[in-house]
Structures are given as C-alpha cells and as structure tokens.
C-alpha cells in the first residue's frame, strides 16, 4: 500500500513537472522576437533580385508578413 502511494506521488510529480515545462515553453515561444504592439526596428536589405527593401517597400495596403527561415543553402 505504502509502495503504491509512493509510485502515485511520483507519477503526480512527473505530470506536474511536464505540465509546468510545457507552459514555460509556450510562454518562451511567445516572448521570442519583436514585441506585439510595438514598431518593428528599422531595417534595409537586398532581395534575390538585387532590390533594396525595407518595411515601406515590402508593405501591402494592410501590411506584410515576414517569414524567418534558417537557410536556402541546405
């Protein structure tokens, strides 16, 4: 009886640990990158066609979506 209580407590602790880790990981994912509601830092970069681009040149009438990707040379 005492042995099964101990196992149950251990399982419960592990479950709590997994849940806490998952919540922390989700929070960390939300904290990455520029803050919501704030202006994106100014930037300038050349694209694959040699054009210089910035937030003004990239935007459509409702804005733009930027994909961050690891590499095109894989």
């Amino acid at each position: 009886m005492r042995h099964s209580d101990k196992t149950l407590r251990l399982i419960l602790c592990l479950l709590i640990l997994v849940s806490v880790r998952s919540v922390l990981a989700q929070t960390a994912a939300q904290e990455k990158g520029p803050k919501l509601g704030e202006k994106l830092p100014a930037f300038r970069a050349r694209d694959q066609f040699g054009r210089e681009q910035n937030a003004e040149t990239l935007t459509g009438s409702k804005g733009f979506v930027m994909l961050f990707f690891r590499s095109a040379d894989w």
Binding site: G33, E38, T59, K62, G63, V65
Partner: peptide, 19 residues
C-alpha cells in the same frame, strides 16, 4: 534565424507572431 512568421501592419507595428 528561428523559423517563424511576424505580421506587421502598414504603420510598421507588429500585430502577430508565430514561432
């Protein structure tokens, strides 16, 4: 870069991000 997306409105304000 960490792979993901940001959505920026016409005023340059970050509205959403997906990482």
């Amino acid at each position: 870069a960490l792979p993901g997306f940001i959505y920026v409105d016409k005023q340059g304000v970050v509205h959403e991000k997906f990482f």
